[in-house]
Design a protein around this nucleic acid. Structure first.
Lengths: 214, 214
DNA sequence: AAGCTTGAGTTTGAGGCTATCACGAACGCT
DNA sequence: AGCGTTCGTGATAGCCTCAAACTCAAGCTT
């Protein structure tokens, strides 16, 4: 995004077409899910014929990988923006939920059913730890008087994932709990597992958040 | 399963072939995920030619629906078995985790990324409430001295999903929290989101369970 | 026991998809 | 202006789902 029109005209054009392909792909994913994504359909929709897209993405997998990367990036940016100085973890939680609700399939691209063979590229795990670092910032700033748990001991010895961050074990534990609990409610909500139960998922989400901060 | 060899010979044969198809389908799903399931491949693997399978399942969707139903049934049976009289919620939690780890793709067939168009048949929601009823049994038997929360009030007014069950609001709340939290840890674990972090998911799972029962 | 009915499994084929290849045409740099 | 790079095309191979027509055997009926 630095220098909007950078590079040679060819590179500009190429980047623009790639962007449009991804845009169409998102539309298709939103309505048919990731499994219903069709390069052919995207091409036709853009007025091109099938194989043309292979100039821009090596194949379906590479396109989906690019989309996953973008989704991760978008999530990390959203979380980071919500964690601006002064804001507490509650703001992050609500930003996360809003991000998920805005495009459920995008959420599931990141946290949904994994494809057995697929392995995420390295930069994605980098983004993931960026998200965790933001959470750690939030919880390290939050004092707690709860006694150390069994998990705290485990985390004290296995804290590679939080590596350069100085957060104490209790913060690590709470950040992890934040992550898993928010994800628990969100993925069930987006999966439609509460529909028909008469429950308001927002209340459940808020309750879990309260419990976490108590 | 009542009366192993029930019905006419034709029906027996039909049931047997249907069962074998589903068996092969599970193998395929375990290694390639639900999206990689191919009727054609199953047929070839069984020594038949493609379209023969359509005698037994109207199409790919119907086969997957049958698999989802079986997975739900299996989960409900597992949970119910673990909740035999005297056993507490801890046993249910560990049975749930063992069930999920035994076949991650089966777990994701139930709780994974939903296909936008797809709507589960009614009997599946029946099984889902059977599972919830078992959880409610467990938590209704568990005394708690915690004060009523905001969510308790909401649940008192929206308890259709627990309908004939006499559990108090606090039990409803804790059963829901059990469900969402266990799912939070499990789905992230099975999705491989902890790999590379150095964390033992079992510790995290146990910690969440402890916290829930404290 | 003979004949009719039912249903299993086959081949054929339409239509969709991913992906590869060779070709012509446009583009931009020198 | 010329030339190499890159884009887009059609053709093709190999998957897939699913519909239709046809063959054949097994089972029920009389």
């Amino acid at each position: 995004m630095a220098e909007p029109g950078a590079g040679t005209p060819r590179e500009r054009y190429r980047a623009q077409v790639r962007a449009e392909i991804k845009e169409r792909a998102w539309e298709q994913i939103a309505t048919a899910g990731a499994s219903g994504l069709s390069l052919n359909a995207i091409a036709k929709h853009m007025g091109m014929s099938g194989p043309a897209l292979y100039r821009y993405f090596a194949g379906r997998d590479e396109l989906i990988t690019a989309l996953i990367r973008d989704a991760y990036r978008s999530l990390a940016d959203t979380v980071r923006a919500a964690a601006e100085p002064g804001a507490d973890v509650t703001a992050v939680a609500h930003a996360l939920r809003a991000w998920a609700l805005a495009d459920p399939q995008r959420y599931f691209l990141v946290y949904g059913t994994p494809v057995p063979g697929y392995h995420a590229p390295d930069d994605v795990t980098t983004i993931a730890s960026e998200i965790m670092a933001t959470l750690l910032d939030g919880f390290a700033a939050l004092p707690t008087d709860a006694p150390a748990t069994r998990l705290d001991a485990h985390l004290e010895e296995h804290r590679q994932w939080a590596d350069p961050h100085p957060a104490p074990p209790a913060a690590l534990r709470r950040a992890l709990a934040f992550w898993t609990r928010m994800h628990g409610v969100l993925s069930l909500e987006l999966g439609g597992h509460f529909t028909g139960m008469g429950i308001d998922p927002a209340e459940l989400f808020a309750s879990e958040l309260d419990d976490l901060l108590a």
